[in-house]
Amino acid sequence: MINTIIFDLGSVLVDWNPNYLYRKLITDEQEMQDFLANITTPDWNEEQDAGRSLKEGTDLLIQQHPQHEAHIRAFYDRWDEMLGDPLQGTIDLFKQLKESGKYKIYALTNWSAETFPVALERYDFMRWFDGIVVSGAEKMRKPAPEFYQLLLDRYNVNPQEALFIDDNLRNILAAEKMGITCIHFTSPEQLKVELEKLHLI
């Protein structure tokens, strides 16, 4: 019997995409994609999500790629421009689950502790959670088992009674190994179908 629901945030509830910023800075689409794939890489960004300071991450990348300094600095100087609208379909499902009164609902997110307050301020639904665990604040991130365990311990959650929703298959597989039921998110429509299958809505 599931009584706890754990959401990832980025690409599940929040539309975060570096393209929104970098299309303003780099007019050639292929050049922009190359920059994001090879300079400000997802692996580099995840180190900030795991607790490395924005300054340290930025300085390190500028040392490696000094010719791209202006565009590298823009990543965090103009980070808020990467935030899009909430994913309304998922927000509606979140609201339905919350208003049922049947579940404790938490967020487990890979997110820099320095940028997370921007999202917290921008999106009203952030206040609906019973708790949010942010990787940058805890100095660990998904898919590390201890990061999931931190949430389970902090909020006294039984993994057998929890559902985890994430768009990243790597993170889903890690949670499944801990005995947590999972939905690999691809769209709000698919999430609705999966929640119905589990008789949660």
Rank of each mutant, 00 (worst) to 15 (best):
H199E: 13
V118E: 08
P159R: 04
Y20S: 06
I62H: 01
N168G: 09
V134R: 00
R23N: 06
L13W: 06
V134T: 13
P117C: 13
L152M: 08
I132R: 04
E176Q: 12
D49V: 08
D49M: 06
Q63L: 12
N45D: 15
V12R: 02
N38Y: 12
L97G: 06
L21E: 08
T58D: 03
N171W: 07
E196Q: 15
I39G: 04
L93P: 04
W111Y: 15
P66V: 13
N38P: 00
L36I: 07
F94V: 07
D15I: 04
R127I: 08
R122E: 13
L150K: 15
N3A: 02
V157F: 02
R141L: 09
D34L: 10
L198P: 08
L93Q: 11
A162W: 02
R23H: 05
Q67G: 11
S11T: 12
T181N: 09
I2D: 03
A175V: 06
V14D: 00
E81P: 00
M1R: 05
G10N: 08
S112H: 11
G131V: 08
L200I: 10
E99P: 02
V133Y: 03
L61H: 06
Y123F: 14
I72M: 08
P145K: 12
A144R: 14
V157M: 04
E69T: 10
L151W: 00
I26E: 00
I5R: 02
T41M: 10
E196Y: 10
L83P: 02
A119L: 15
I6G: 00
A144C: 09
Q33H: 05
L173K: 14
M140E: 03
G84R: 08
K142D: 03
A137Q: 13
N171C: 12
W44A: 11
K95F: 05
D28L: 02
Q88P: 04
T90G: 13
A74R: 00
I2H: 01
I2W: 01
E81D: 12
K192G: 06
L61F: 08
I72L: 09
L120T: 09
G10R: 07
D92R: 09
Y22I: 06
I172Y: 02
V157C: 05
A107C: 11
G101R: 07
N110L: 07
I183E: 01
I5G: 00
D124R: 11
N168Q: 14
D124T: 12
Q48F: 08
E121V: 10
P66S: 14
K102Y: 04
Q30W: 01
V134N: 02
L60E: 14
D167H: 10
P86Q: 13
P188N: 09
L163W: 01
Q63W: 00
P117V: 11
K102D: 10
N17Y: 00
Y103Q: 06
K139H: 12
I62R: 02
R141F: 02
F129E: 01
I172A: 07
R23M: 07
Y123K: 09
E56P: 00
K55M: 14
N45F: 15
L36Q: 03
Q63E: 14
L61P: 08
T90S: 15
H199S: 13
R141Y: 01
V157I: 15
